[in-house]
């Protein structure tokens, strides 16, 4: 499934500065592997060592936060738009 992936500023070091890159995969997990094959290091910024989505990274498929649609198992269709955004968070704690 050919999709477009929007890359946030902080991760554009992995995409030669590109704001969006093409990708391919039947689901989000496969897409991230596909991206990793051309943008080495990107995946480890999104996925923790135990293989789950990082708590402070948001990934959306067509405006839906994947946390509500099956996380890394979220299915993709041709033409889907995938957006990666780091959480904006912090605080005194």
């Amino acid at each position: 499934m050919a999709v477009e992936v929007k890359i946030p500023t902080i991760l554009r070091t992995y995409t030669d500065g590109a704001k969006s890159v093409p990708g391919d995969g039947a689901n989000l997990s496969a897409l991230l592997d596909d991206l990793e094959s051309r943008h080495t290091g990107l995946k480890s910024r999104l996925i923790t060592d135990d293989g789950s989505l990082h708590r402070f990274v948001n990934i959306y498929v067509n405006d839906e936060d994947v946390r509500f649609t099956g996380s890394l198992d979220t299915a993709l269709s041709d033409g889907d738009s995938v957006t990666i955004l780091p959480a904006v968070a912090g605080g005194a704690a």
Partner: peptide, 9 residues
């Protein structure tokens, strides 16, 4: 926390 989560260079 602020430092580790800052993500807009």
């Amino acid at each position: 926390t602020d430092i580790s989560l800052a993500s807009e260079p």
